[in-house]
Computed example of a mutant assay.
Amino acid sequence: MRAVWLKEFGGPERLVPGEAPDPVPGDGRALVAVEFVNITFVETQMRAGAGPSPVKWELPVIPGNGVGGVVTAVGPGVDEGLIGRRVVSGTGGTGGYAELAAVDAGGLFEVPDGLALDDAVALLADGRTATMMLRAARPRPGERVLVEAAAGGVGTLLVQLAKAGGATVVAAAGGPHKAEVPMRLGADEAADYREPGWAEKVGDVDVVFDGVGGEVAREAFTLLRPGGRMVSFGLASGEWAGVPEDEAAGRDVTLVRAEATQEEMREFTRSALAEAAAGRLRPVIGQRYPLGGAADAHAAIQSRSTVGKTLLEVR
Rank of each mutant, 00 (worst) to 15 (best):
Ile285Lys: 09
Glu148Asn: 08
Val307Pro: 04
Gly92Lys: 05
Val55Asp: 15
Glu148Val: 01
Glu239Leu: 05
Thr168Met: 12
Ser89His: 07
Arg280Pro: 00
Arg128Lys: 12
Ser303Ile: 06
Leu108Gly: 05
Gly308Gln: 04
Ser237Thr: 00
Ala171Glu: 02
Gly186Cys: 01
Arg128Phe: 04
Val42Met: 15
Trp5Arg: 09
Leu158Tyr: 03
Leu115Phe: 10
Glu19Tyr: 07
Gly114Leu: 07
Gly26Trp: 15
Met183Ala: 13
Gly279Arg: 04
Ala258Arg: 03
Val34Phe: 15
Ala149Met: 02
Val87Thr: 01
Ala3His: 04
Gly166Thr: 04
Met1Pro: 14
Met132Leu: 12
Val314Asn: 07
Ala171Cys: 13
Asp79His: 06
Gln160Leu: 05
Ala48Asn: 14
Gly28Gln: 12
Val42Ile: 13
Leu224Lys: 09
Asn38Val: 06
Ala299Thr: 03
Val159Asn: 02
Asp204Asn: 09
Ala248Pro: 04
Ala276His: 04
Ala137Trp: 00
Val216Cys: 00
Ala220Pro: 02
Gly234Asn: 01
Leu312Val: 06
Val216Ala: 03
Val212Arg: 01
Asp246Thr: 10
Ala164Gln: 14
Val67Lys: 01
Leu100Tyr: 12
Ala260Tyr: 02
Gly96Phe: 05
Ser305Ile: 12
Glu275Asp: 07
Gly68Phe: 06
Ala249Asn: 06
Ala3Lys: 03
Ile301Tyr: 00
Val147Pro: 00
Gly92Ala: 07
Val88Asp: 11
Gly250Lys: 01
Val4Gly: 09
Gly186Pro: 07
Ala276Trp: 01
Ala3Val: 14
Glu259Thr: 04
His298Cys: 03
Gln45His: 13
Arg85Met: 01
Ala150Lys: 02
Gly92His: 10
Asp296Ile: 05
Glu259Tyr: 03
Gly69Ala: 05
Glu13Thr: 09
